[in-house]
Write a protein that binds this DNA or RNA. Structure first.
Lengths: 218, 218
DNA sequence: CTTATTTTTTAGATTAGACTAAAAATAAAT
DNA sequence: ATTTATTTTTAGTCTAATCTAAAAAATAAG
């Protein structure tokens, strides 16, 4: 399995949440930041290897095998991100690029030992679940902050957008995983909200509140 | 710089110890486990990028730039090997393959932080020196065990052959870095020697004694 | 100093992955 | 239901890295 094949599988895996009845070629090309013709080529290759099911013009779906492989890569990615933050003092906005490389290292033992070394973490530095050795993804119940009503509150447990820009914004305003957040007010005009984060009060735009995952606590 | 280019640079770097006036194409091909024609191709590419100096039929020599890059890769390789042994419970015969992959990860910060995390180790698990951040290799004075006279002794500080088979042989006979070794007798017929390793006495064949590095202690 | 051998290079093919440009299939709109 | 627009695929080219087979250069031997 080549590096490029693995990246395509991963892309399709993520896109399947959005396109449940076959991921379109264009969507894959866009996700991979390449051209549709290149995506078509790769789709054919993956199809021949039975990693995806594909009929021309019908979009792609991962097979059991393809999905299993994608999950393995995602497991490695998230374990490496955890390593970088927990052991090497990387901040959560610095880990993605490096993990993109590390996720392709081939060694069963390496990932098993790394998992042990990290103390079998359940989530990565962005709150995303780390698939277990059998490929099982333990999804956590989470709510988008913007869906909370005034008076409701909870704990920040993840981000939807994990771009460096967004993560840096959160750092700047002292919002991090584990912080308690309570909704003090909502502005219907622009959907911004007034929240209490830890001891601070601040106003969050819609763009921010729609990208933060909360675990509701009564 | 591609993965393959890096591997060729590394190969040439190691071969330069043996071929001081230009590394022959065939030697490179053999080291890289490929064909001479492939080596010629790569030599041309590296030459165009000024990473090696090369005139047809004259063999290859690393330029300053090429050598610096090779050393960086070697630094990464040895730091990763240290990580695998010190932190992830790999044994010294298991690290090479994985480090061959990890050495190509591109991130200045990663390697800087890894070095710090490991406590700035001076040598890798086989006793080979880890180049520092500036590419300086602090070579240790070492003697091949077979060169010692009867009565002389020292500490095992490295291996010349780091094949899995040899390392496993050493494990089996409780020979590891840091162990004290004393020569009790030499057999001129087959150049085997009787040695005391720690508290044990054992006979080492010439193949073994010519592949163990010793720091002589009086 | 020619001949034979070894080493190295060239020539031509192949594969994975990507690209551009054009054709074909599907979907949308008058 | 045709025309228009979008999406997808095909056809052909390109690059990095490899290979085999053959030619050319350098070295060694008689």
């Amino acid at each position: 399995m080549t590096l490029s094949e693995e990246n395509y599988l991963k892309a399709i895996f993520h896109l399947e949440k959005k396109y449940t009845k076959g991921v379109p070629t264009n969507a894959i090309a866009e996700e991979m930041d390449t051209k549709a013709s290149s995506a078509t080529d790769m789709i054919k290759r993956l199809s021949e290897k039975d990693l995806i099911a594909y009929k021309p013009y019908q979009g792609a779906k991962l097979t059991k095998e393809g999905s299993a492989h994608a999950v393995k890569v995602i497991r490695k990615h998230r374990l490496w991100e955890s390593f970088l933050v927990d052991k090497l003092d990387f901040s959560w906005d610095e880990v993605h690029e490096v993990a993109e490389q590390l996720e392709h290292i081939k060694s069963e033992k390496l990932i098993k030992e790394l998992d042990k070394f990290l103390g079998y973490p359940k989530t990565d530095p962005h709150g995303d679940p780390i698939p277990d050795e059998n490929g099982k993804i333990h999804r956590i119940e989470k709510t988008i902050l913007s869906k909370l009503e005034v008076g409701q509150g909870g704990v920040c447990i993840g981000v939807k957008d994990s771009s460096s820009a967004f993560l840096k914004y959160l750092d700047k305003h002292h919002i991090s995983l584990g912080k308690s957040i309570k909704v003090l007010g909502k502005e219907s005009f622009d959907n911004s909200m007034l929240v209490k984060v830890g001891e601070d009060e601040l106003t969050l735009s819609s763009l921010v509140s729609t990208n933060l995952y909360i675990k509701i606590v009564k």
